[in-house]
């Protein structure tokens, strides 16, 4: 078990290395550069040249990459164009994204699994048809579009929920974990925790749309398949109560593929966070990445994407480990 985890984590190194090479080339291939983003439009060619020289952008790309690697080896992600350490920025912003992504996934799981299950049990009836149709819409709707619609309706027109940021401006709070809800609960500042929850609702709903749709559909398909399994018929033949049959025999088995899907959805969730956070001015790494890309802030882009990639790998590792608990037939040793 430990060996497996270590091996998987070590595999992260070549993964990140390959990704960093590609990314390094890609971001530099983007039209424009930090000079166009930073300098005013009337800056002279000489100004631009001097800035490029200062930022080391005139060196051959492999020299730049070697310098990047050398810094990375010391866990130094470099500095943003504004001069702050990328690692500091990420440390400040990452909790916001974790909070948002976690709540979005929670919505997807807490709503999607029961919904998918009920749809499967009521196959072809109204609930099923609406769940399947609704999830199709959820998958097809671009996240940022949904984010704008939700914001327009619930924040701007109805005014029920705040339209941006993580807390009502001016709220004082104690920062412990960076997770505002958790901090509020730990310190007993429940009004802060509640304020944070209220601010999370709209962005989390927008972000949850795709995972919710996928989880619903996966659960539905998986439950329908499991219902036809021989062991469910055996359970029926044993005269067990419907509750035991549904939970112990149907749902436990039906959850296996859903768990895998949840791991893979983390990727979609982090990608979706880029757009959702930008729409709701939610100060996480998503909006940070969005701004960094606009200003061609190479160091910030590299740092953020590598962090996201690491999170993705780690989450899927956790899912694989969870799988061994859920399904005794799967072992990681060997």
């Amino acid at each position: 078990m430990v060996r497996y985890v270590v091996t998987r984590l070590l595999q992260l190194i070549p993964t990140l290395f390959g990704l960093s090479v590609l990314l390094f080339i890609w971001v530099r291939a983007l039209p424009g550069g930090p000079d166009t983003a930073l300098l005013p439009e009337n800056a002279t060619a000489a100004d631009r040249e001097r800035l490029r020289q200062d930022l080391g952008l005139n060196d051959p790309i492999w020299v730049q990459y070697a310098a990047f690697l050398a810094r990375l080896a010391q866990l130094d992600f470099g500095h943003t164009l504004r001069g702050r350490a990328v690692s500091t920025e990420l440390a400040e912003r990452f909790p916001a994204t974790i909070e948002l992504a976690f709540v979005a996934m929670l919505i997807a799981v807490v709503v999607g699994i029961p919904l998918g299950y009920l749809a499967a049990r009521n196959r072809g009836r109204f609930l099923d048809v609406s769940a399947v149709g609704g999830s199709l819409i959820g998958i097809c709707t671009p996240v940022f579009f949904l984010a704008f619609i939700l914001k327009e309706i619930f924040a701007v027109r109805l005014g029920w929920l705040p339209s941006s940021s993580r807390l009502t401006p001016g709220t004082s709070y104690t920062d412990i974990t960076g997770l505002r809800v958790v901090d509020g609960i730990i310190t007993g500042e429940f009004h802060v925790a509640w304020d944070a929850v209220v601010h999370l609702i709209l962005p989390a709903l927008a972000l949850a749309s795709i995972p919710l749709a996928v989880v619903t559909r996966m659960t539905r398909a998986s439950v329908m398949e499991t219902l036809g399994e021989d062991f469910v018929r055996t359970a029926e033949s044993k005269g067990l109560t419907a509750r035991v049959i549904q939970f112990r025999h149907v749902l436990r088995n039906a959850m296996l593929p859903v768990v895998t899907a949840i791991g893979l959805l983390t990727g979609a969730l982090l990608a979706g966070a880029v757009l959702t956070e930008s729409v709701f001015a939610f100060g996480g790494i998503g909006s940070f990445l969005f701004q960094a890309t606009q200003s061609r802030d190479y160091a910030a882009i590299m740092g953020t994407v590598l962090l996201i990639a690491t999170v993705f790998v780690v989450v899927n590792l956790v899912v694989d480990l969870l799988y061994t608990v859920l399904d005794p037939r799967v072992t990681v040793d060997r």
């Binding site: 055996t234 088995n253 399904d327 005794p328 037939r329």
Partner: peptide
């Protein structure tokens, strides 16, 4: 094999 629940 198929008549018994694999995860219980």
């Amino acid at each position: 094999l198929s008549a018994l629940n694999p995860v219980v």
